[in-house]
Design a protein around this nucleic acid. Structure first.
Length: 314
RNA sequence: CGCGGGGUAGAGCAGUUCGGUAGCUCGUCGGGCUCAUAACCCGGAGGUCGAGGGUUCAAGUCCCUCCCCCGCAA
């Protein structure tokens, strides 16, 4: 007799978990996701990835504006044994959490208690972490503060960006979720409180955070580029930097100065320490391309500052 | 009807206003030079200018239709 489960999630990150639940034979009674919003070019209404997946499997979809308000009744009617959340984006009230008799399990993309919050993968990369992972936990009223059930570590690949890593963690999280549910069913799932002393919280990324600060070291800038891609992106003036490498550089140029800019050498920018070798970039209105390709058709003056003065401040 | 940019040689771009022999940088191929190079010199190949139709003596360029790509915004 398999558990009756309600899944809650919205973006791509949640899809592998939802699919894993279905594939593992759980009775997925319903799927909650955020309301459809106009998005994309042309402002068309698009289903979020989780909804697309649910629809494809013929699972009823619920899109409350605020789950703790208009989601309560629908959830009660579904009478789930257990709820699963994965990047749902809504804060659940105690009333909601009390509905499933076995509680609510969250699949979080970090090694809790580190990197609580909505953008754990991005921040782990920005901070230059070499190891991260996924955690299954009991959702409580706090922000990723519930008891830890299972964890799995993973080494960050050199040069891996947030998009790729989220992808990888989403699949790992899906596997770990199934393991966790099996254990819960068997009544032998481990469970431990989070150590508050080790906890860290990081906020949602915002577009305003996307500006590159060239007074930082080349290594820090590389990590920033990785962590901010594919969204919101790392911006150096008018250019979005998609991929970069840290290089040694000795000289007294000001941070942000263009050191080299031609099709053969590529684009090098002075950092607070070392130089940033921009490998892939994107100009406003343009498509992503190798920096060298860009320089074949566009000129950037050596010695110029890549970013306007005022963006160096702060 | 949310706003906007674009499709020209393998790559990245200019040329379109005001129709008149298809250009630039890089790559590539061949030759030369140098102790050496992200070096330099000489020469060559490579393009149905996104598709279709129209106007014209003549269309990459003007008119109409369509396809595709991308940025902002989310």
């Amino acid at each position: 007799m398999s558990l009756r489960v309600v899944f809650m999630g919205t973006p791509d990150y949640g899809v592998p978990s939802l699919e894993a639940l279905i594939a593992a034979g759980y009775d997925v009674a319903g799927v909650f996701c955020q309301p459809d919003k106009p998005s994309g070019r042309g402002k068309k209404i698009a289903f979020c990835p989780v909804k697309q997946c649910a629809v494809a499997h013929g699972i009823p979809v619920f899109q409350p504006v605020k789950t703790r308000v208009d989601g309560v009744e629908p959830l009660r009617k579904l009478a789930p044994d257990l709820c699963v959340t994965a990047a749902f984006g809504h804060i659940l009230s105690q009333e909601v959490l009390d509905i499933p008799r076995l509680g609510t399990v969250n699949v979080h993309a970090s090694l809790l208690p580190a990197y609580r919050g909505s953008a754990p993968v991005n921040w782990a990369l920005i901070n230059g972490e070499m190891v991260t992972g996924v955690t299954t936990m009991m959702t409580d009223k706090g922000m990723d503060t519930g008891d830890i059930l299972m964890q799995r570590e993973v080494a960050v690949e050199p040069g891996e960006n947030a998009g790729a890593l989220v992808d990888r963690l989403a699949r790992m999280g899906a596997e770990l979720l199934i393991e966790t549910l099996r254990a819960i069913e068997n009544g032998d799932c481990p469970r431990r409180k989070q150590d508050e002393a080790l906890a860290s919280y990081y906020p949602l990324l915002k577009k305003e955070m996307s500006r590159m600060d060239f007074t930082k070291t080349a290594k820090q800038l590389c990590d920033f580029v990785r962590g901010m891609n594919p969204w919101p992106g790392a911006y150096a003036g008018a250019y979005k930097v998609l991929e970069a490498r840290a290089e040694d550089w000795n000289g007294n140029e000001a941070p942000g100065a263009v050191l080299r800019a031609d099709p053969k050498a590529g684009l090098w920018i002075r950092a607070g320490e070392g130089a940033l070798n921009v490998l892939r970039m994107q100009a406003a209105g343009g498509k992503p391309m190798d920096a060298r390709d860009y320089l074949r058709g566009h000129q950037i003056e050596t010695g110029a500052r890549i970013a306007p003065e005022e963006t160096d401040a702060e």
